[in-house]
């Protein structure tokens, strides 16, 4: 537990530095608030806010997030396997077979996702 306390130090130093720099630039800069500075950027024209442009999103981002979640869960199971592989695998090959089945089932998933053209943007 003792060493984990030291993880607080870079947290305090890093975030403190960032906030200090932001505060410094806020107080040091000029303060001319032109009208164009305060409106959202839309490549030089006035903001066009049609009602038909609200809530039009691309579902592919949601799919990427779900795919990332599922494969991230697979990756975290690779970590305990990798930790004990060197010491256990030389004794018995069952560990490799277990992990092989796991990776094979997930490769079936990746193959299905590939074939459904979900990965093509």
């Amino acid at each position: 537990m003792g060493q984990y306390i030291h993880l607080i130090f870079p947290l305090v130093i890093g975030w403190g530095f960032a906030f200090a720099v932001i505060a410094l630039s806020h107080f040091l800069g000029p303060k001319k608030n032109l009208k164009t500075d305060l409106t959202p950027y839309e490549c030089g024209v006035e903001v066009v806010d049609l009602p038909s442009s609200k809530n039009r999103f691309d579902i592919r981002f949601y799919l990427v997030a779900i795919l990332f979640l599922v494969f991230d869960l697979e990756v975290i199971f690779l970590f305990p396997f990798a930790y004990i592989f060197k010491s256990v695998a030389t004794v018995s090959p069952f560990l490799m077979i277990e992990m092989g089945v796991f990776i094979a089932i997930l490769l079936v998933g990746l193959f299905y996702v590939w074939k459904k053209d979900v990965l093509i943007w």
Binding site: L63, I66, L67, V70, L73, E74, F77, P80, F81, Y83, I84, V88, L95, E98, M99, V101, F102, I105, L106, V108, G109, Y112, V113, K116, V118
Partner: peptide, 27 residues
């Protein structure tokens, strides 16, 4: 890690099937 792959290996393999089902469901 040793326990995960010896005593709970069935749950571990079942988890991969659950993840596969999640993938197919999301698509």
């Amino acid at each position: 890690s040793l326990l995960l792959f010896s005593k709970h290996v069935f749950a571990f393999e079942l988890l991969s099937v659950v993840l596969l089902a999640t993938l197919v469901g999301a698509i």
